[in-house]
């Protein structure tokens, strides 16, 4: 690879910051996407096993009637709103408007807390009615998948709080982008959990 036409042999000195191969992708983005790829396969493994259980367990439908679809619907709206505010915070971070970025991140974190709160309400009501995980195939899959997803939403909220503190000192737009990416990932997974347990 020639450095701007100068034959490599002649180079005696290099400007600091120039001594690396140019790859054009910020290392934070690659690192985060690798981590996200691992996360997708973890939740993918759970959802695939649950789909297999569903196909092998005929009366899945009588059980899924007992789930509370209205709370789940509200939760879906909450997550979608969170996605909108996340992408707006990402957009404002890259146009270096750090005030707006903080605002939108705060809104996304708020959506996360609302989601987890509603989840808590929903679980307590279901357990009150006696639908415990060890009851049958539907309920054990339901609690495992939605529980793990809920933990990931909580983790996403914590990540957002961390990034909000981080960008106070270091103005690194990629940090906001990664927080937004994680939120979108959690949202997409919910798009498949919602119909799997609540609608069908």
């Amino acid at each position: 690879m020639k450095a701007e036409g100068v034959r490599e042999v002649e180079i005696q000195e290099i400007q600091i910051g120039q001594e690396y191969e140019k790859v054009g992708i910020p290392f934070q983005k690659i690192g985060f996407w690798i981590f996200l790829a691992g996360e997708i396969v973890i939740l993918g493994g759970i959802v695939a096993s649950v789909i297999l259980f569903r196909l092998s367990y005929p009366h899945w439908f009588e059980e899924s009637v007992h789930t509370n679809a209205t709370i789940a619907f509200i939760n879906t709206l909450v997550l979608l709103t969170g996605s909108l505010t996340a992408v707006l915070s990402h957009q404002s971070a890259f146009s270096y408007n750090w005030g707006k970025a903080q605002l939108f991140l705060g809104l996304t974190a708020l959506c996360g807390l609302v989601f987890v709160g509603l989840k808590f309400v929903e679980y307590s009501r279901e357990i009150h009615h006696g639908f415990v995980p060890s009851r049958n195939v539907f309920w054990m899959s339901y609690y495992t998948t939605t529980g793990l997803h809920g933990l990931h939403v909580l983790a996403g909220t914590l990540i957002i709080f961390g990034v909000m503190l981080y960008i106070k000192k270091k103005k690194v737009p990629e940090a906001v982008e990664n927080a937004a990416l994680y939120w979108h990932f959690v949202d997409i997974v919910w798009l498949y959990i919602f119909p799997l347990f609540y609608l069908t």
Binding site: W33, G44, G45, V47
Partner: peptide, 18 residues
């Protein structure tokens, strides 16, 4: 290409498992 492949490979793994 790198990022898109990082996003697509998990879906292939999901399909294999399923």
């Amino acid at each position: 290409r790198i990022i898109i492949s990082l996003a697509l490979i998990p879906l292939v793994i999901f399909a294999i498992i399923l």
